[in-house]
Structures are given as structure tokens and as C-alpha cells.
């Protein structure tokens, strides 16, 4: 679970950086896409790794959920979480949302299957900016990206603890780095649909 999560986060670090190239205009991002497309084997391997990671993550998530739910067959009539965060308590929902989103997203921007605008495999810039011009698509991305922020805010911090890689701390629930990462993802990813919607990106 933790390892797959971290791999995905690392992918997203790369992904968000690549996506930010849209601000450099069509040539920048399309250039990168062309460079990557030229290395077919590498891309295939990367995609395979990613696919396996996602599958592992989802399988592990389902197993975990099953065990945890079975751990308390009868719930409390009244229960007041003291410190559990919204992010932590909604991991399964943010995860579910992300899963659905990824399917949609791949169909939308990788294969172009559900691209409501004309799709050009070579024109990443056009696909992205064009896609986000449509209100509901942009909205969907914004929601998904918010879920991502929450998932990462809890997930990044949690995975290091799951792997036992954290240090002893007098306030173990503080997680400045996870907060930073989550905010960075959220702001950076959100900026693109917004920018496209309000016309900064054309």
C-alpha cells in the first residue's frame, strides 16, 4: 500500500512538473511529449509499472478495507473522533474518486476516447487547453485534484510511518512536508483548468 502510494506520488511529481510546461506554450509541452513518445520502450515500461502499481494499490486498498471493517462489526452509537483528520477518515472515498478519475483521465487525455473536443495525439497542449474550456470537464478535474490533495496529505505522511521510516518526534502527528506536497499538488494541478477556463491559456 505504502510503497505503491509513494511510487504514484513520485509519478505525480514528474507529472505535475510536465504539466506546468503548458504555461510555456504549446511548443514546450508538445516538445516534451514528442521526446517521450520517441522512446517507446521506456514509455511502455513506465506505463506498465504505473499500471501494476495502481492495480496493487487498489487490491491492497480493498483488502485493507475488508479487514478494517471486519475489525468492528458493531459500531458505536456515539463516537467523537479526537484528532483523526478529514483526509485520513476519507481515504477510501478520495481513493475511489481518484480511481474513477484516472480512468476518465486516461480516456480523456491519453487515448482521446472521451475527448469532447477534436483530439490530436501530437497536440497535447491543444487537447489539454481545449478540454478544460468545457466547464464540466474543468470542474471534474478540480474536484479530483482536491481529492488528490487530501489523499496525499494523509498518504504521504502515513506511508513513511507504515514503512517505519519516520523519526521519533514529540508531536508525531505534525506533517509539514506532507502538507506542503499536498498543497503544491493541489494548487499546481488546479491552476491549469482554471487558467484554461478563464482564458489565460488559449
Amino acid at each position: 500500500m505504502a510503497a505503491s502510494g509513494i511510487v504514484m506520488i513520485l509519478f505525480l511529481v514528474f507529472h505535475v512538473a510536465a504539466n506546468l510546461l503548458v504555461y510555456g506554450g504549446p511548443s514546450a509541452i508538445n516538445g516534451l511529449a514528442n521526446v517521450l513518445d520517441a522512446r517507446t520502450e521506456l514509455l511502455t515500461v513506465a506505463r506498465l509499472v504505473l499500471l501494476v502499481t495502481i492495480v496493487l494499490h487498489v487490491v491492497a486498498a480493498i483488502q485493507l478495507l475488508a479487514i478494517d471493517r471486519a475489525g468492528r462489526p458493531i459500531g458505536y452509537a456515539k463516537r467523537k473522533p479526537q484528532v483523526a483528520t478529514l483526509a485520513g477518515l476519507t481515504m477510501r472515498w478520495s481513493g475511489l474518486l481518484l480511481g474513477l478519475f484516472i480512468v476518465f483521465h486516461v480516456l480523456h487525455l491519453t487515448t482521446g476516447t472521451v475527448q469532447p473536443m477534436p483530439f490530436h495525439a501530437a497536440d497535447v497542449y491543444g487537447n489539454v487547453v481545449g478540454g478544460f474550456r468545457i466547464g464540466w470537464v474543468a470542474a471534474l478535474y478540480l474536484v479530483a485534484v482536491a481529492a488528490l490533495g487530501l489523499h496525499v496529505y494523509h498518504g504521504w505522511w502515513a506511508s513513511f510511518r507504515t514503512l517505519g521510516l519516520s523519526r521519533r518526534s514529540p508531536a508525531p502527528r505534525r506533517r509539514p512536508f506532507a502538507l506542503l506536497l499536498a498543497l503544491a499538488f493541489w494548487l499546481a494541478f488546479s491552476s491549469i483548468p482554471i487558467a484554461a477556463l478563464v482564458g489565460i491559456l488559449k
Binding site: D68, P81, P172
Partner: peptide
Amino acid sequence: GNCTWHGECQEACPKEISI
């Protein structure tokens, strides 16, 4: 169940044992 890092246990622990 498993630990998914909610931190509630430390808060409830009468001896405040750290997660």
C-alpha cells in the same frame, strides 16, 4: 484492524503512548 494512521489511539491512551 490495521493501522492507517488516524492517531486516535495515542489520544485515547491513558498513558499517552506515542504512535
